[in-house]
Design a protein around this nucleic acid. Sequence first.
DNA 1: CTCTCCATGTAAATGGTTACATGATTCA
DNA 2: TGAATCATGTAACCATTTACATGGAGAG
Lengths: 191, 191
Amino acid sequence: MALRHAVLAALVDHDASGYELTKVFDMSVANYWYASPQQLYAELTRLEESGLITGREVAQDKRPNKRVFAITDSGREALRDFIDVASKPAFIRDDLLVKVHAAEAGNLQSLVDDLTERAAHAEAKAHRFEGLLQILRGDRTEAEFLVDATRVGPYLTGLRGISFERENAAWCRRAAEVLTARIRAEVGGTP
Amino acid sequence: MALRHAVLAALVDHDASGYELTKVFDMSVANYWYASPQQLYAELTRLEESGLITGREVAQDKRPNKRVFAITDSGREALRDFIDVASKPAFIRDDLLVKVHAAEAGNLQSLVDDLTERAAHAEAKAHRFEGLLQILRGDRTEAEFLVDATRVGPYLTGLRGISFERENAAWCRRAAEVLTARIRAEVGGTP
DNA sequence: CTCTCCATGTAAATGGTTACATGATTCA
DNA sequence: TGAATCATGTAACCATTTACATGGAGAG
């Protein structure tokens, strides 16, 4: 189980309700994981049953009540154990790459459109992550922050997220460029 | 379904048996997808039932018979349709990133070891992919190849695989470096 | 009065991993 | 004689996605 640990990691710094976690999984955790709200609520229930987190009901004024979850000692222990066993390499597994592999078997223009859209999306995501890291380090330089801060984990994953999205954007643009040139060559005939 | 299309994409260029596909999914397709042998055999059965591929029994000398699969017209059509609908962005979803996020909650040294191993693994993979691309382009330069070749899809996905693994390696090393410095600071006390 | 945000779920279907199973050939 | 390669699967389990469901509050 994997989401399990991602949720625990997200709760290391701050307690959160299910709803708040959906926001966190859209922002900072989105560097390296995504989970739908349904998935999160289900996982929180299971984690509480296993005693790795505890929930407390918080009444709110003019808003629905919420259940705020905190990681327990045995949750921290589970996280320590998880960190101790070596993990296997992950794969990209991206539909868009499958499409590019098969590019010549389909419509090149619609693929170029898809790539262009994705480039913009990736760039925007990288930009957002950069903003988050700026907030984390405050007035320190990155080097200072990485030495001084009490907590560097989220910053480091942020760096990975940024580089992933930037590389993604660059590649999408390059692939779109190559395919566009081929569309033109096709239309112009092969002299 | 996603593996479905990855298999079709792999069969665009060459027919292959299940066993041969496991090799392909370990090499060139490994840029962007992975599937276990069991998964592949199951998917091939389903694809044949749906008529998107056809298998023929090939008898071999001193080796078990094999079933070689070829993509059909309706398989090519399915691929075209797949390419036409826009795809959603993918996520990294890597256990190692989860661990780094939670770094301070566990043993830093075992995390550094994990990161170092992964860096080496990623570097090796990038290197392998570079060899494959070199073979693909032969004596042409990359620019020439991307204009001339009849088929650039696999080359483009290869480029993405290389950049992903290189960035992975660089990030792993950087994170290991940062965490190692913090281990030393911890051991040396905080003067 | 409609849309978005807050807040939480259930249920069904699809996709992926892990464990188990078999048997011949070739190379060291 | 033991390991690696060729060759193919079944079964059980675990994880993720998608569709469906509800309801109040505040903003425009």
